[in-house]
């Protein structure tokens, strides 16, 4: 951050650059992830996926973007034009606003907010508004059903996710993601999944509960990005494409980009909360601002790959099963873990 600050005296330019940096990451990341996802999906089904464009189809994501760019942007006659146009941008804004507090490295986080993780949970909820808006404005039964399901799902799963985050915040004693990461920078044994920097006795007692919280966070984060097995808002076999049925061209591309950005966001949060964010697993070795970015992105991508792996393994859940898992299984378990962690920390 300092070298950018020193290079640019202009405060406005600095702010714009600071705000644009995550975008510089998201765009290539989305292309790479689309490619990885298609390849993994194909190989899990003993297929090959893209092979024609470039070496093993490496240029296919670019071709997809070009295709989406030149497609006709249709706005249905019966749609609410203003909301229809606004919705995809709102979804992306909700996701992108959350990127502001992600510490990409020890030298860069868009904003080192003291309420970091709280802000992130709040800002990413804006996505629900965008999705509901898209479904309502499309004036289409499928879109509306998809949007309603999405809203119900995201609202339900935010509770166990927030409880899991709460458990971590209790252990770390801070909501600032940058500080949270610095606490874990002493090596792999200081990561919060292994009990953080607490004394050994506390650590051993905490680990099982933190692991449960991590699993709960992982599952609810998958539900929050609307991916299989929690893709009932888009359930192709039931709802065509859910809330983005009526979207085409660039607006659809923005939905798509927002979905992938959101996928990285929840993975990155999991990394920051449980796996030391930009901190190197070897303590002082291979640490520094640039190495930090490397570790952060690598760990994040590992979780993205885990998400993709799960997506192409599991079938879609039914709506009632989805609610059951959230309210009757994950929320009680998360609550229990938070309470037990509280007791352990007090003792």
């Amino acid at each position: 951050m300092e070298f950018i600050t020193s290079a640019l005296e202009n405060q406005i330019l600095l702010t714009v650059l600071n705000a644009a940096l995550p975008l510089l990451f998201i765009l290539p990341y989305a292309l790479v992830t689309i490619y990885i996802e298609m390849k993994m999906a194909a190989h899990m089904q003993n297929r090959l996926a893209y092979m024609q464009t470039g070496y093993h189809g490496t240029l296919q994501p670019f071709a997809d973007i070009v295709k989406l760019l030149q497609k006709e942007d249709i706005i249905p006659t019966a749609a609410d034009k203003f909301l229809f146009i606004l919705a995809p941008y709102l979804v992306f804004v909700g996701t992108y606003a959350s990127f502001a507090v992600l510490p990409f490295s020890s030298a860069y986080a868009g904003s080192e907010l003291d309420l970091g993780i709280f802000y992130l949970v709040a800002a990413s909820s804006l996505v629900v508004v965008g999705i509901l808006m898209a479904g309502w404005a499309s004036n289409n039964k499928w879109s509306l059903f998809g949007a309603l399901r999405s809203a119900a799902q995201i609202v339900s799963y935010e509770i166990p996710a927030a409880l899991a985050i709460l458990g971590v915040v209790m252990i770390a004693g801070t909501m600032n993601l940058q500080t949270l990461t610095s606490l874990q920078s002493g090596g792999i044994h200081e990561w919060i999944i292994f009990g953080g920097t607490l004394p050994l006795g506390h650590k051993l007692a905490l680990i099982p509960f933190i692991v449960v919280l991590f699993v709960i966070y992982l599952i609810s984060s998958m539900a929050e990005v609307n991916r299989t097995p929690f893709d009932i808002p888009e359930a192709e076999s039931e709802l065509v494409q859910g809330y983005n049925t009526e979207y085409s061209g660039m607006k659809f591309a923005i939905f798509y980009l927002a979905e992938y950005a959101n996928l990285f966001l929840v993975s990155a949060v999991a990394v920051v909360l449980f796996f030391g964010g930009w901190a190197s697993p070897f303590g002082e070795l291979m640490s520094g601002p640039l190495w930090g970015t490397f570790w952060f992105v690598t760990k994040g991508m590992l979780f993205v790959c885990l998400n993709i792996w799960l997506r192409w393994t599991l079938p879609r859940m039914r709506v009632d099963q989805l609610m059951y898992v959230s309210w009757k299984v994950m929320t009680p378990f998360a609550l229990l873990c938070v309470i037990v962690i509280g007791f352990i920390l007090v003792l």
Binding site: M40, H43, M44, Q45, N46, R47, L48, M51, W309, L310, W312, T313, L314
Partner: peptide, 21 residues
Amino acid sequence: SVAIGMSVTMRQMFAPVVTLQ
């Protein structure tokens, strides 16, 4: 069951591809 499913997909990922180009 999730673990079993994931191990199946992971094994399939490195199984020979059947696609004929």
